[in-house]
Write a protein that binds this DNA or RNA. Structure first.
Lengths: 212, 212
DNA sequence: CATAAGTCGTGATTAATTTCACAATAGTAT
DNA sequence: ATACTATTGTGAAATTAATCACGACTTATG
């Protein structure tokens, strides 16, 4: 918890850096410059250097960064060694997408259980993840602290309340509803319809160049 | 294209405001204050007032905002009357989720066609949207200017090149790959794995309170 | 060894966004 | 009418993030 001074904008880019460093490593590249990385992840090179610098001097002047070293560093920083268990609520199309995906490669998160209100889905198993009926939420969730919400908006509030009572700490909400939670619980909203509309708005109103 | 001075951060919130105003309207509410709206969309009320103020004085002091008026205003501003056609590339789980969803309510975007490389999927039809084989991309896409990419990362570059050649203007990229496009094309990346990892990182390193 | 080329780390600057805080005004109640 | 209350719109301040630009250092080359 020491490095709480890292800007949120930087923190959000860390997983991205991590994945690309992993790619480079698999490709057998031993070193990389902020300029090269910049082209790969589409983030300004000065921003990358600044981001890295919050963690200390990780590179060498005139050389760049050693891929393996950097990777090892981020592995620790991003807690890649310790897997965070995640519960998925709602096994519709979107939920199924997550289950099949299940963040297989270089990832520190794992969906360990899923819930659905449809009895024909529960008792099943998708991508090796057991699916339970939503009624079993409280019994099954154990000490899982992170949930992905891929349910209809109308159910968001009810499920959220139950998750909060189960001691959940973070929710990734794909529901269009903006859910209310106690202050100490973190919610990230990803609103697919809004994202698409925003893209369309930018296309019409913000003439060429300038990525998001 | 007149109001190019609207901050990007504001522009990204507009679709969200629009949807909640619609909800309020359906509920029969005639007026709303920035404070109420703030609670609903989880955006600071001063930010909401500031956002609205870029479009002029839309509210009344001591009263708030007239829901219907505001809604009418945003409908025009967000081009809600004119539907933007969208093509979906990749009818896997995630792609299917989009097709079934298809942004039915209060939306100015519509997926009008989908493509997949699996012949057993193409020639089909999901949620009323025709699915073509990816080989037909150039023949079928017509003047659709926006594409959603829900394909494996390995195919991202190839498909992107073809889309660019077809004259695409905006891409909503769900692929983990950071695609390269000419300057005048807008790409928004939504990286599900990164979002989840970022949430986990925040949980571990940023103690309670403060939503993203 | 000396020179050239490349690249980091960061102070300083600029830009973007959020938040504070309050005067002005509209509505409401008596 | 008058007083009271609610709420906007916005100047100013604060915060956060991105970018510039350059000194210092590393490696490569002849």
């Amino acid at each position: 918890m020491e490095q709480s001074k890292i800007p949120q904008a930087t923190a959000k880019r860390l997983p991205l850096y991590y994945r690309f460093l992993n790619n480079l490593n698999h490709q057998g590249k031993a070193r990389v410059s902020s300029k090269e990385l910049s082209e790969a992840v589409k983030v300004d090179s000065a921003t990358i250097r600044r981001d890295f610098s919050y963690f200390g001097a990780l590179g060498k002047k005139g050389y760049g960064y050693n891929v393996e070293y950097l990777l090892g560093f981020f592995r620790k920083t991003l807690d890649q060694d310790e897997v965070t268990e995640v519960a998925l609520i709602g096994v519709g199309n979107l939920g199924t997408a997550f289950l099949n995906y299940n963040f297989t490669k270089n990832n520190n998160t794992k969906i360990v259980m899923a819930f659905d209100s449809d009895p024909s889905k529960s008792e099943g198993n998708v991508g090796g993840v057991p699916i339970y009926h939503i009624a079993e939420l409280e019994d099954r969730i154990g000490d899982v602290k992170v949930a992905i919400l891929t349910i209809p908006a109308s159910e968001a509030d009810g499920i959220t309340t139950r998750l909060v009572d189960c001691g959940i700490e973070g929710i990734l909400n794909f529901t269009p509803a903006r859910i209310s939670v106690p202050e100490h619980i973190r919610v990230h909203h990803i609103d697919l319809a809004v994202e698409l509309q925003a893209l369309v708005y930018f296309l019409k109103h913000y003439p060429l160049d300038e990525g998001l």
